[in-house]
C-alpha cells in the first residue's frame, strides 16, 4: 500500500470522528441533521476510497447506499418531519455541552487505547480504521444517551452505524458487507418511518421520549 492511499483513507476516517464531535455540540435540530448529512457524505467518500484501494468493486454499492440513502434521502425526510412536527426549538440535552465533549474525548481515548493494543497484529490501515470506527460508535452511543428528542436519537443511532460501516469496510475482504449495509438501511428506514407512521406525533403531540415516560407514569 502506497503512502498516499493510506494517508487519504486515514484522513477520511479521522474526519468521521471529527464530525461526530461536531454533532455532539449542535443544539438545533436542523443543524444537527445537516452535520449528519455531512458525515454520511464523508463516509461515502471513505467507502469509495476503500473500494478503490482494495480493488473491491462491491464496496462501491455500499458507498452509493451511504451517499444516496444516508446523505440525501434520510436527511431530507428528517427535515420534513421536524418541520411538520414544528420542533425547530433547541434540543434538550441531559448533560451540558462541556461535560459531553469531555466525555467524548475520554471515549475516543478509550477506543484508541483498546483497539490499537488488541489489533497489533493486523495491518496498519485496518488498525486505524478499527480504532476510528470504535470512536465513532462510542460517540454515537454517547449522543443517544445525552439527547432526549426522538429525532436526535435516530441521528445518534445512524452515526453509530456509520462507525460500523467504516469498520466493515476497513476489515479488508470482509464478506457480506453490502448485504449488511442493506440490512442496516432497512432498519433505519423502519425507524424513520416508525416515528412518522407509528403516529408518535399524532398521539403524543411530540416526539420527545421523556414525554412517553411521563405519559406512562400518569397511567399507573
Amino acid at each position: 500500500m502506497s503512502g498516499l492511499d493510506f494517508d487519504f483513507a486515514h484522513l477520511l476516517a479521522g474526519s468521521l470522528v471529527l464530525i461526530s464531535f461536531m454533532m455532539l455540540y449542535q443544539d438545533r435540530l436542523t443543524a444537527l441533521i445537516n452535520v449528519f448529512a455531512l458525515q454520511a457524505l464523508v463516509l461515502a467518500m471513505s467507502v469509495a476510497w476503500q473500494a478503490y484501494i482494495q480493488a473491491a468493486p462491491h464496496l462501491y454499492v455500499t458507498a452509493v447506499i451511504a451517499l444516496v440513502f444516508k446523505a440525501l434521502v434520510i436527511p431530507g425526510a428528517l427535515h420534513r418531519i421536524i418541520k411538520r412536527l414544528g420542533v425547530h426549538r433547541e434540543i434538550e440535552t441531559v448533560v451540558g455541552v462541556g461535560p459531553t465533549m469531555l466525555a467524548g474525548i475520554g471515549l475516543v481515548a478509550l477506543a484508541m487505547v483498546v483497539m490499537l493494543r488488541v489489533t497489533a497484529a493486523a495491518d496498519q490501515l485496518a488498525r486505524e480504521d478499527m480504532a476510528f470506527a470504535l470512536s465513532v460508535l462510542l460517540l454515537g452511543l454517547l449522543m443517544m444517551v445525552t439527547r432526549r428528542n426522538a429525532v436526535s436519537l435516530i441521528i445518534g443511532f445512524m452515526s453509530l452505524e456509520n462507525g460500523l460501516v467504516l469498520a466493515a469496510t476497513g476489515a479488508k475482504g470482509m464478506p457480506l458487507v453490502v448485504e449488511i449495509s442493506v440490512a442496516f438501511s432497512v432498519l433505519i428506514a423502519f425507524i424513520v418511518v416508525g416515528v412518522f407512521l407509528f403516529r408518535i406525533r399524532e398521539r403524543f403531540d411530540t416526539v420527545d421520549v421523556s414525554a412517553l415516560d411521563r405519559f406512562r407514569e400518569a397511567q399507573k
Partner: peptide, 12 residues
C-alpha cells in the same frame, strides 16, 4: 400509547 412506547423502546 403503551404499545407504541413499548415498541419504540424495544426498537431503540
Amino acid at each position: 400509547h403503551e404499545a407504541l412506547e413499548a415498541a419504540w423502546k424495544y426498537f431503540i
